[in-house]
């Protein structure tokens, strides 16, 4: 059989972000994945840092000095906190949704179609508001008057 040339049209990571004109849940999906990768990076750094204690106090102090600067204090730490809050709150929604809660029962498709996305959207709004409140409280602690 003659092998014909084809063009690989896979979107790859552009499929997470690109295209535009998508639904809100798709952007939350992307945010969840990006914050998840950010938290993974933080945990690796965290393990590296705490491991340094095994090499004595000087190693530990040297590492702590490296991560105590204003860039870590006012940029990376708030980012880790924000990622943790958003990933955690949205994770609660995903656990519920992926166990079949809040997606509704199958129904006859009658135009205009209402999908499970419409059913779970109040839950999504609720967790995003909760995340916003926790982020605001955390923001006061990070950047508030006491600092």
């Amino acid at each position: 059989m003659v092998e014909r040339k084809r063009y690989d049209n896979r979107l790859g990571f552009w499929g997470w972000l690109g295209g535009g004109r998508w639904g809100f849940e798709r952007y939350v999906y992307t945010l969840h994945r990006v914050t998840g990768l950010g938290l993974l990076g933080y945990f690796l750094l965290h393990i590296l840092l705490t491991t340094s204690r095994a090499f004595g106090e000087p190693a530990w102090t040297a590492w702590m000095d490296r991560v105590s600067g204003p860039v870590f204090r006012y940029v990376f730490e708030p980012l880790v906190f924000a990622a943790f809050v958003i990933h955690g709150m949205n994770g609660i929604r995903l656990i519920l949704v992926e166990l079949g809660f809040a997606v509704g029962k199958p129904e006859d498709p009658v135009y205009p179609y209402r999908t499970s996305l419409n059913k779970q959207r109040p839950l999504l709004v609720a967790v995003m508001i909760a995340a916003g409140v926790v982020l605001a409280i955390g923001g006061v602690d990070f950047f508030g008057m006491g600092h």
Binding site: R26, R33, L94, E98, G104, P109, Y111, T115, S116, L117
Partner: peptide, 21 residues
């Protein structure tokens, strides 16, 4: 992970995202 776009674009209202959950 429930991006839900499958259900948004389905031309027949099948709602695959619901079926998968």
């Amino acid at each position: 992970h429930y991006a839900g776009e499958c259900s948004n674009v389905c031309p027949k209202g099948v709602d695959p995202a619901r079926a998968i959950q």
